[in-house]
Design a protein around this nucleic acid. Structure first.
Lengths: 136, 136
DNA sequence: ACTTTCACTTGCTTTTTGCAAGTTAAATAT
DNA sequence: ATATTTAACTTGCAAAAAGCAAGTGAAAGT
């Protein structure tokens, strides 16, 4: 798990992956607008890193060529169970969590189904974006 | 999950929690000896932080008062499913992972049982340590 | 043509990390 | 009893990273 620590054992990489996997964010502008307030230079740096480590793929928007979107690879999507595990943890220990209480119940009742639901969400968001679909 | 990012969205906090939850490490010296090579000042700083955020409790060893051990709280232990999720991910995407291949299989076949096994491991390690046991 | 949007870059200050050495208390050896 | 070693930090400083504000350049909209 040293490899994992290198990839998302860093506040901003962690936040970006969370935003892509759980909050449907895909565009540079979306990431920039996150509540955490990432600096533009750090954001650019992390997007490059995540691309280099095969977590995201960069695409210029087909309709509007000044926009750039970042899509999660299969490698990134495979982190979904881990991130959902953290989300469950948040519902229990983070007083300010935004995760709905119903989420933890749903996950406990049917983890596999809940993961599948989030996977489908990722596909749904990707489909709405004017960029090539993901393999896998 | 902003709270989560604040607590272990940092390489060293992440590594320390992993070592406590997955590798049975409890003593300052154990953490220092980890392959990642954490600096002593950073280690001290992170141990304080993790104590402040209620992830670890600090205890002076009963037999040898020059040694200090850090035990995971229930709050930290509740991260076990998430960390095991990352470990599963590592078996798939980290070429240099130390996690045995058998682990991923075991986890997929029986996640609940695998988590329980690691919980029991934590208890077993804690029991060998000359410090007060953790409240459940 | 002019302005705006969008995705970055650049330069600079502040914060954090990494490294080496030092300190303090307790245990062990002499 | 004294000296050495073990163990857990602390301190000081240089290097790296992060945060901030402003700037750049391509593409869109007006």
């Amino acid at each position: 798990m040293r490899y994992a620590a290198g990839i998302f054992g860093d506040k901003w990489s962690f936040v970006l992956l969370r935003d892509v996997l759980l909050h449907g964010k895909r565009y540079y502008g979306d990431f920039l607008a996150s509540d955490e307030g990432i600096a533009t230079n750090v954001l650019a740096n992390r997007l490059v890193r995540l691309e280099e480590t095969g977590m995201l793929t960069r695409h210029v928007d087909h309709q509007k060529k000044s926009k750039v979107c970042y899509l999660p690879t299969a490698k990134a999507r495979a982190l979904l169970p881990a991130f959902l595990g953290m989300m469950v943890w948040s519902t229990e220990y983070d007083a300010c969590t935004e995760a709905p209480v119903s989420f933890a119940e749903a996950f406990r009742a049917d983890p596999t189904g809940t993961i599948a639901w989030y996977e489908a969400e990722i596909d749904r968001v990707n489909a709405q974006i004017n960029a090539p679909a993901q393999a896998g």
